[in-house]
């Protein structure tokens, strides 16, 4: 029996354990959920998003602002659904089968957020997240925390806790 390690074994060991000659550099990363509303890309920190739900039956409740679409039943729990585009001043684009509801939490509140499509959940190096541009449209500014590039496009990161807080206070 050949006891020598063959190339495949070497490669698999390297894939399993990494190259001992290369020391890993711990760079702080933040998980981001990237999604689109209309043509604009946004992101929430992954820590703020509990779940990405497919489109489901939304029960309308009278007496709510139009941005509050209604409530959904999530495995026996009831939560509200907000049309995120209405808060951000971005028109929703309905694409069959791609609309999703992000189940988010922040500032001790939880709600669903209607988005047009979820593109990715990825780790972004913190150093790659730039402060929001001063030319950012005013409607995004209250909740913008930073910007980063994704597939050659700009993504605006949002603070979900602040957004919920402002929404509850009637500011959004």
């Amino acid at each position: 029996m050949n006891s020598e390690r063959d190339a495949l074994t070497e490669i698999l060991a390297w894939r399993r354990h990494g190259d001992p000659n290369i020391s890993a550099v711990e760079a702080p990363v933040v998980k981001m959920v990237v999604f689109a509303v209309g043509d604009t890309l946004f992101a929430f920190p992954g820590a703020s998003v509990t779940e990405i739900l497919p489109m489901t039956t939304i029960y309308w409740v009278p007496g709510c602002p139009s941005s509050l679409e209604g409530v959904i039943n999530v495995r026996g729990d009831v939560t509200s659904v907000i049309r995120l585009g209405d808060l951000l001043g971005v028109e929703h684009v309905t694409e069959d089968g791609r609309t999703a509801i992000l189940l988010g939490h922040g500032n001790a509140m939880c709600s669903g957020l209607r988005v047009d499509r979820v593109l990715d959940v990825l780790d972004v190096l913190e150093e790659r997240i730039q402060p929001p541009l001063s030319t950012l449209p005013e409607r995004f500014q209250p909740w913008a925390t930073g910007m980063f590039a994704y597939q050659g496009r700009s993504v605006l990161a949002l603070d979900l806790g602040r957004l919920f807080q402002d929404y509850r206070a009637g500011l959004a």
């Binding site: 409740v61 009278p62 007496g63 709510c64 602002p65 509050l68 409530v71 729990d77 009831v78 939560t79 509200s80 907000i82 509140m109 939880c110 709600s111 919920f164 929404y167 509850r168 206070a169 009637g170």
Partner: peptide, 13 residues
Amino acid sequence: YPLPPLLEARLVL
């Protein structure tokens, strides 16, 4: 179910 907090805060009915 009680009303979800954001809905309760914005409900005018």
